[in-house]
Nucleic acid binder design. Structure first.
Lengths: 227, 227
DNA sequence: TCAGAAGTTGACTTTTTGGTCAGCTTTTGG
DNA sequence: CCAAAAGCTGACCAAAAAGTCAACTTCTGA
């Protein structure tokens, strides 16, 4: 899709980098692949399927990628570079209430817009995460630790109740990813055939409500003032 | 394994139903299969692998099961019969505090003891749940609805804050299943190579703490008195 | 004891899959 | 304009997978 005409009709027609054939076809292959990997996992996905889904002959897929592993590895790499983006909200200079609420909203929005990538990652986890390199594992750990410390600080400052930050993060990941990874169960629960925007909004409100209610100190107010 | 001698050396040697050859071999096949399906999904699992893992010749696997689908379907069926067991804790005649705490503990214990089954189910969800029959979907919906009503009643009675029960259940499922389905991420987060019992205990305490803190009314106390 | 039922299995066929390749067409830079 | 580089692909192959089967052994009830 989005086959645009050359923007510069001049003599040289310098094309944008993304318009180059290689970039375009690799993108098509990766897009098709992430969909299939997300559904069927690494072992269950056939190269021929990827070829068909990306509307390229199988041999052409091999022209761009050495092996199936190479495709998978590229996707893992791409995914991990965005792993921490939502976590940016958890910053020491912010108020936990807003920071956590923003994090939940961002993660849920990611689940909504990038359900495929989320499922792809979930599938890799089900496989045992064997495709993650030592470096990539460390990356996840480092980024997590960094934010765990922020939460620990909030607790020390009395801005949060004394709660194990690591398990709290797990709760947040799990609750937000569920709407992508197990969208069918979520939809069944909500009596839908598929999730709608309002479902995500309600999910966000509920998660924020419960998490903040369970984390913020028991002083005066405990949540948003709207009923 | 577990090749036992006949218990009754008498003339008739009436054997227990489970000792019958068919039962034993089917069990071996299903056990091997659920492990493989959990890791590699339906499409990624080879019959030969199942045969090897169950220490039977491939032809013997085909003797007991028509197709791979048949094995998978049997496992789905078996799994769903235990789907609601943890939900039994959510009963109208109980106090929400204990009921929810018990539910979380039970679900987490299931994740710990039956991680394989949990992953198998997660894999089926990633596939889109296409293997679930209409009846099975309805079963999930019905059971859920039943318990949603209990929670709604608690809310009406003022025993719980006004929170969307469906999304609450999703939070509970997600948070507890994560420790089975994404055990590797959980372990990474907790700086472990694999999860230990104490990790599950801490998970339970944290989840119970946060969920109850976020759900119970804001009156006097808000959680367990132990610090 | 013994005939039929149940269980076992190596070897086989067919189908699918990952991967290759030679020769073709298109694009590109000068 | 043109040669080289990049891109394309039908046809092919070897390996692996699914699935079959006939001959065999073991079990069971009468």
């Amino acid at each position: 899709m989005a086959r645009e005409k050359r923007a510069t009709p001049g003599r040289k027609a310098a094309k944008a980098p993304e318009e180059r054939i290689r970039a375009r076809n690799e993108a098509a292959i990766l897009k098709a692949a992430v969909n299939l990997f997300a559904r069927k996992g690494f072992d269950g996905t056939r190269i021929a399927e990827i070829a068909k889904a990306s509307k390229l002959p199988k041999a052409n897929v091999y022209y761009y990628f050495e092996t199936k592993e190479a495709i998978y590895a590229r996707l893992i790499e791409r995914l991990l570079s965005g792993w921490d983006s939502a976590l940016e909200h958890i910053r020491a200079d912010r108020e936990p209430r807003e920071a956590i609420a923003d994090y939940i909203a961002a993660k849920l929005e990611y689940s909504r817009k990038n359900a495929v990538e989320s499922r792809f990652f979930a599938n890799e986890m089900l496989r045992g995460g064997g495709f993650l390199s030592r470096t990539q594992r460390r990356h996840i750990q480092d980024v997590t630790h960094e934010r765990v410390e922020v939460v620990e600080n909030w607790i020390r400052e009395g801005k949060l109740r004394k709660i194990d930050p690591k398990h709290l993060f797990i709760m947040l990941w799990a609750s937000t990813q569920f709407y992508a990874d197990s969208a069918e169960v979520a939809a069944m629960t909500l009596d839908r055939t598929s999730l709608r925007r309002t479902d995500y909004d309600n999910a966000r409100d509920t998660i924020v409500d419960v998490i903040l209610g369970g984390c913020l100190p028991v002083a005066g107010e405990h949540g948003p003032t709207n009923d």
